[in-house]
Structure formats: structure tokens, C-alpha cells
């Protein structure tokens, strides 16, 4: 059997088309050209098209999930950077306060050992009133030995690390995890495209089966079905592999 999609344009063309149709209908049925094979090819093409549509939907769904994960990762990155900026600002603010306290303490100590009674009296009052208040502002850098280095300087990086560790909101953020999740979806989407190409190739073979006769038709049909099954197996493998990968990651 041969298909004929010719449409009559004018009288002459219509006549030519009618002639072609008549000729086509006159083609005798040969090996692999029966109505049963024709029906099988049509059914296979319909199944392949439905599978392609489902694979396209799933691929689009994966792209959408990847986009969502990326957006979440970006939002969390911005929030994380915001927390880091605030923590650095607080750490250096505290360092400034601690520095004022430590310098005032050194000044008071020098006054105390100056041998001058007036300065000693002044130092006593400064220690009692000024240093006590400055010490409150300088907490915890000037009082906690964890932040004092051997050379006398302040360990601001350690204070920053502690501020980060204390920040529960910061600990809850995981932009890298969201980006890894997005990359999983994107890799899966890429592999889906390979499956989609396989389905298109299957359609190609089935198309060949549709236009050929005899053994070539049977070969086209068998190849089309095999490539389609391979494409389906590929897609199923992709689903299983990535589900396993996400499970292992979790």
C-alpha cells in the first residue's frame, strides 16, 4: 500500500493526482506490505509519539525543578553573604571596642606606676569608672582568653568563626546543596535528551518502514521497535540512576 497526500490544485493537477491515486491503489500487496503490518507500524508510531510527549513533559519538569533549585540556591547565597557581612562587621566593631579598652588599660597602668600622686589618683578613678565601662563594651574579645593571641593581638578571625557558629539562621542555609540538587536535575535533563533523540530515531525507522515494502519494511519496523525499546530503557535507567544518586546524596 502507498499513501497519497496529493491535493488537487487545478484541473490538470487534479487529473494527475487522480491518476497517481489510481496507480497507487493498484499496487499489489507484497511481503511485509499487508494491512496487518501497516496497522502495527501505525500503532508503533502512535506509541512512540505518546512516549516522546511524556518524555518531553518530564524533561521540561526536570528543567523547571533545576530552575527552582538554582533560584533557592541564589536566594540562600545572598542571605548567607548578608549574614557573613553582618558577622564581619560585628567582629570588627567588637575589636574596635576591645582595642579602646586595652589601650585605656595600658594608659591607666602607666599612670599607676608613674610615681606621681595626682596621676595615681586619676588612674584609680579611671580604673574604677572608665575601665569598668569600657570592659563591658569590649566583651568578649578583651576578657575571653580564647581571643587573645600569644603576641598580644586579638584573634578576630576566631571571633568571626564563633559568631558564625552561633548563628542558627546561617547554619540552616545550604546554597551549595541547592546548587548540587540543580546540577543533578540538569544532568538528568541532559540524559533525557539522549532518550528523546533515541525516540526520534525510532520514529525515523518506523517512517522508513511506512514508505518501504517487503523485507525493508520489516527491517524498518523491527529497528524502530528496538530503538524505541532502547530509548525507553535508557529513560528508565536515567530515572533509576538519578533517583539513586539523590538518595545517596540525601
Amino acid at each position: 500500500m502507498a499513501t497519497n497526500n496529493n491535493l488537487p490544485r487545478d484541473g490538470t493537477e487534479g487529473e494527475s493526482v487522480s491518476q497517481e491515486r489510481a496507480q497507487s491503489e493498484a499496487v499489489p500487496e507484497r511481503v511485509g506490505g499487508g494491512g496487518r503490518t501497516e496497522g502495527l507500524i501505525a500503532a508503533a508510531m502512535a506509541i512512540v509519539l505518546i512516549a516522546t510527549a511524556v518524555a518531553s513533559w518530564r524533561s521540561s519538569d526536570l528543567g523547571s525543578r533545576a530552575g527552582d533549585a538554582e533560584r533557592l540556591g541564589m536566594i540562600q547565597s545572598i542571605q548567607q553573604q548578608d549574614f557573613l557581612n553582618l558577622d564581619w562587621q560585628l567582629a570588627y566593631q567588637e575589636a574596635g571596642n576591645a582595642q579602646r579598652h586595652l589601650l585605656a588599660e595600658a594608659e591607666v597602668r602607666a599612670m599607676e606606676i608613674s610615681g606621681d600622686r595626682g596621676l595615681e589618683a586619676q588612674a584609680a578613678n579611671q580604673r574604677k569608672y572608665v575601665l569598668a565601662n569600657l570592659a563591658l563594651l569590649a566583651e568578649p574579645l578583651s576578657s575571653d582568653p580564647a581571643y587573645a593571641r600569644a603576641d598580644g593581638s586579638l584573634d578576630i578571625a576566631q571571633r568571626f568563626a564563633d559568631l558564625q557558629a552561633q548563628n542558627a539562621d546561617l547554619a540552616a542555609l545550604d546554597p551549595e546543596g541547592a546548587f548540587i540538587q540543580a546540577e543533578y536535575y540538569q544532568s538528568q535533563q541532559r540524559s533525557y535528551f539522549v532518550g528523546a533523540v533515541l525516540l526520534a530515531l525510532s520514529l525515523f525507522w518506523l517512517g522508513l518502514a511506512e514508505i518501504t515494502r517487503g523485507k525493508a519494511r520489516i527491517t524498518g519496523l523491527v529497528m524502530g521497535v528496538l530503538v524505541f525499546l532502547f530509548g525507553l530503557a535508557w529513560i528508565a535507567g536515567v530515572e533509576v540512576l538519578w533517583a539513586l544518586a539523590r538518595w545517596v546524596e540525601a
Binding site: E20, L199, G207
Partner: peptide
């Protein structure tokens, strides 16, 4: 009834083949 012209059949097959090839190329 006469058989279809081999030339017409060949062109029709070529068109279908090219359509399929374009479909595969579009998928890739």
C-alpha cells in the same frame, strides 16, 4: 489499472526520507 510511475514513487520516498531526516536533525 497501471502501476505507479517509478519516478513518482522515488520522489515521494525521497520526500518522506528527507522529512524523517529533518525530524531527527531537529531532535538533535
Amino acid at each position: 489499472m497501471t502501476a505507479p510511475s517509478p519516478n513518482t514513487e522515488r520522489w515521494r520516498s525521497v520526500v518522506v526520507f528527507l522529512t524523517m531526516a529533518a525530524t531527527v536533525a531537529a531532535a538533535i
